[in-house]
């Protein structure tokens, strides 16, 4: 629809294809290409092989994969629990207090990640709590950054839940805890899973705060990629980037699969 003429449609689609290819397909393809390249002197790379990947896994950057995964999973798990608790508490509430808390839990998403890093650096390099130089401070930074996102996703999920289904549970005699356990959380599960999946993805790509905080023994993938490319190891950097992309996508797919495998389809039963 919209464009009925054959020529007009061809022109529009041609331009669209060009934009999508240049902006999105080409960058992804080129990174993958570079990840397998040994040399790139002419237009196209040469000496293709797995050398960059073996180099990554044999050297320090390999540890970055582990650091990123642990950081992402830990920070996202805490963010999910805290975000769910916050979203449940603020649900259906009204008034200035609720609005203020809502704003507070969203605020980390407004703060530049570098500033989050700086703030944690300033706060925990002095007594009473000394965390500077630990892996924990990196996890904390990632928690702060993904917390707003987890809270937002769970809140949005809660708003999608059919209210009458929960009311029905209540009228059938379910206590608040029973209803939460048997009805609200199961219905929320797809949203929780999606929130968790994207939180981990967000955390795995985090660079700003991590750059400010990371201790020598806890270098995440993005920091490692920057270090590699900064000193000219662009192909190894690309290989690690491909690993990062793959890890992110595999993780997202796994989360999606896990939810779909479960019986919880957060779909409303009514046909109306």
């Amino acid at each position: 629809m919209l464009i009925w003429s054959r020529a007009g449609r061809a022109a529009v689609l041609g331009v669209t294809a060009l934009v999508v290819l240049v902006l999105y397909a080409a960058p992804l393809a080129i990174i993958v290409l570079a990840a397998f390249a040994g040399q790139w002197n002419g237009v196209w790379p040469s000496q293709m092989g797995l050398g960059n990947f073996t180099a990554v896994f044999q050297g320090a950057p390999g540890e970055a994969v582990w650091a990123s995964l642990v950081t992402g999973l830990a920070a996202s798990a805490v963010a999910l629990v805290s975000g769910t608790a916050a979203a449940l508490a603020l649900r259906g509430g009204r008034g200035i207090g609720r609005r203020a808390l809502d704003l507070l839990f969203f605020l980390p998403s407004a703060v530049p990640s570098v500033s989050v890093g700086l703030a944690l650096l300033v706060a925990f390099s002095r007594p009473p709590v000394l965390l500077n130089g630990t892996a924990l401070i990196v996890v904390i930074a990632h928690f702060v950054i993904v917390s707003a996102f987890a809270f937002g996703a769970v809140s949005a999920g809660l708003m999608q839940l059919p209210r009458d289904v929960e009311q029905m549970a209540e009228s059938l005699g379910a206590s608040a805890g029973y209803r939460l356990r048997r009805v609200t959380l199961p219905l929320l599960l797809p949203y929780l899973a999606a929130a968790f999946g994207l939180s981990v993805a967000l955390s795995m790509g985090e660079l700003g705060a991590t750059s400010m905080l990371y201790p020598p023994g806890w270098v995440t993938m993005p920091v490692s990629i920057f270090a590699l490319t900064d000193r000219g190891d662009v192909f190894e950097g690309s290989a690690l980037t491909v690993i990062l992309i793959a890890a992110t996508l595999v993780h997202l797919a796994l989360v999606q699969l896990a939810t779909r495998g479960g019986r919880a389809g957060g779909r409303r039963s009514g046909t109306a």
């Binding site: 009228s171 059938l172 005699g173 919880a264 389809g265 957060g266 779909r267 009514g270 109306a272």
Partner: peptide
Amino acid sequence: APNARNIGMVVQNYALFPH
């Protein structure tokens, strides 16, 4: 509270627990 009233309720869109 609704859960202490021992009432049977049926609504227009059924509100079955989908899971």
